[in-house]
Amino acid sequence: MIQNLLDGILTGAVISLGAIGLTMVMHMLRFANFAYAELLAIGAYAALVFDRVLAALAPALATAFKPLTVSASLALATLLAMAITGASAVVVDWLVFRRIRAKADALSMVFASFGVALIIRNAITLAFGHNAQLFSQDIAFATVLSTDPLILVKADQVFVLVAALALMAAFHIVLTRTSFGFALRAVAENPTLAQVAGVRLSTMIVAVWLIGGGLSAAAGVFYTLTNHLSPALGSNFLLPVFAATIVGGIGSVYGAVLGGFLVGVASGLSLAVLPSGYVPAMPFLIILAVLLLRPHGLFGEDQA
């Protein structure tokens, strides 16, 4: 039970990272982006490629910092992957969503994002195959914190949680302490008013995609570090990140963070209530509960 709770918090951190960008995109561009979760997969695969390349160029970088399985090359690769993923999010917006925004309504974008997700996922499958990939072939054994009840933690898990929280804290500082952060919040809260106040919407859209892409890439890498990587990574996270944004209230960054942890913990505990086969439906049940109890989420405003 406690073990499931701990694991849920860890998965929650990954979901939160993914949900931060999604909630901003959904609020600012006013559409449910079904392609968003693919950014996690793009990020993780990009990190995989950079990690292999760096390790080949400079084998010294490839030694893991024990007891972690993280190496210097992977850390560098993650930073590169965050940049690449942010850039690819901007490119997709520029190629597809921006053009559709100009022509049709937000709902056409929802469907376009369906198409984009399909293209990205299958392009990844073509390039890397269906099989599970790993950053490191070594099995990182967990440390036993307690035997009764059994509580196990892996060093990688602690690292991932700390790194995810650090990223969120950094983003919090940007949001609250910089003029860029003010502008971003202004746009998120009221795009029209912000434009009147002199914020350039197009610049902000690019910024949101960059931030969302970067955070998602980190989420994808963190996830892969303690699990495994397959082309389905993105689609697997789609419903959880959607659930997190809805729990938090669309448009609320802090709501998304909290929502991510809630969804993660609930999914972690789901086996206590549901037979194992029903686990994929857990985020849906959370969405259902929110819709029944508090339709605008924890921090969402009422806007029909």
């Binding site: 073990q3 499931n4 694991d7 849920g8 998965t11 059994l150 996830y223 303690t226 699990n227 495994h228 397959s230 389905a232 990574l233 689609s235 697997n236 996270f237 959880p240 999914s267 972690g268 789901s270 086996l271 037979p275 194992s276 086969g277 686990v279 994929p280």
Partner: peptide
């Protein structure tokens, strides 16, 4: 314990079995 296809991870399932 059912292992559903393509889940993000199976830690919860494994933890359940360990119990």
């Amino acid at each position: 314990i059912a292992i559903s296809d393509g889940q993000p991870g199976y830690r919860a399932e494994v933890t359940q079995a360990l119990a």
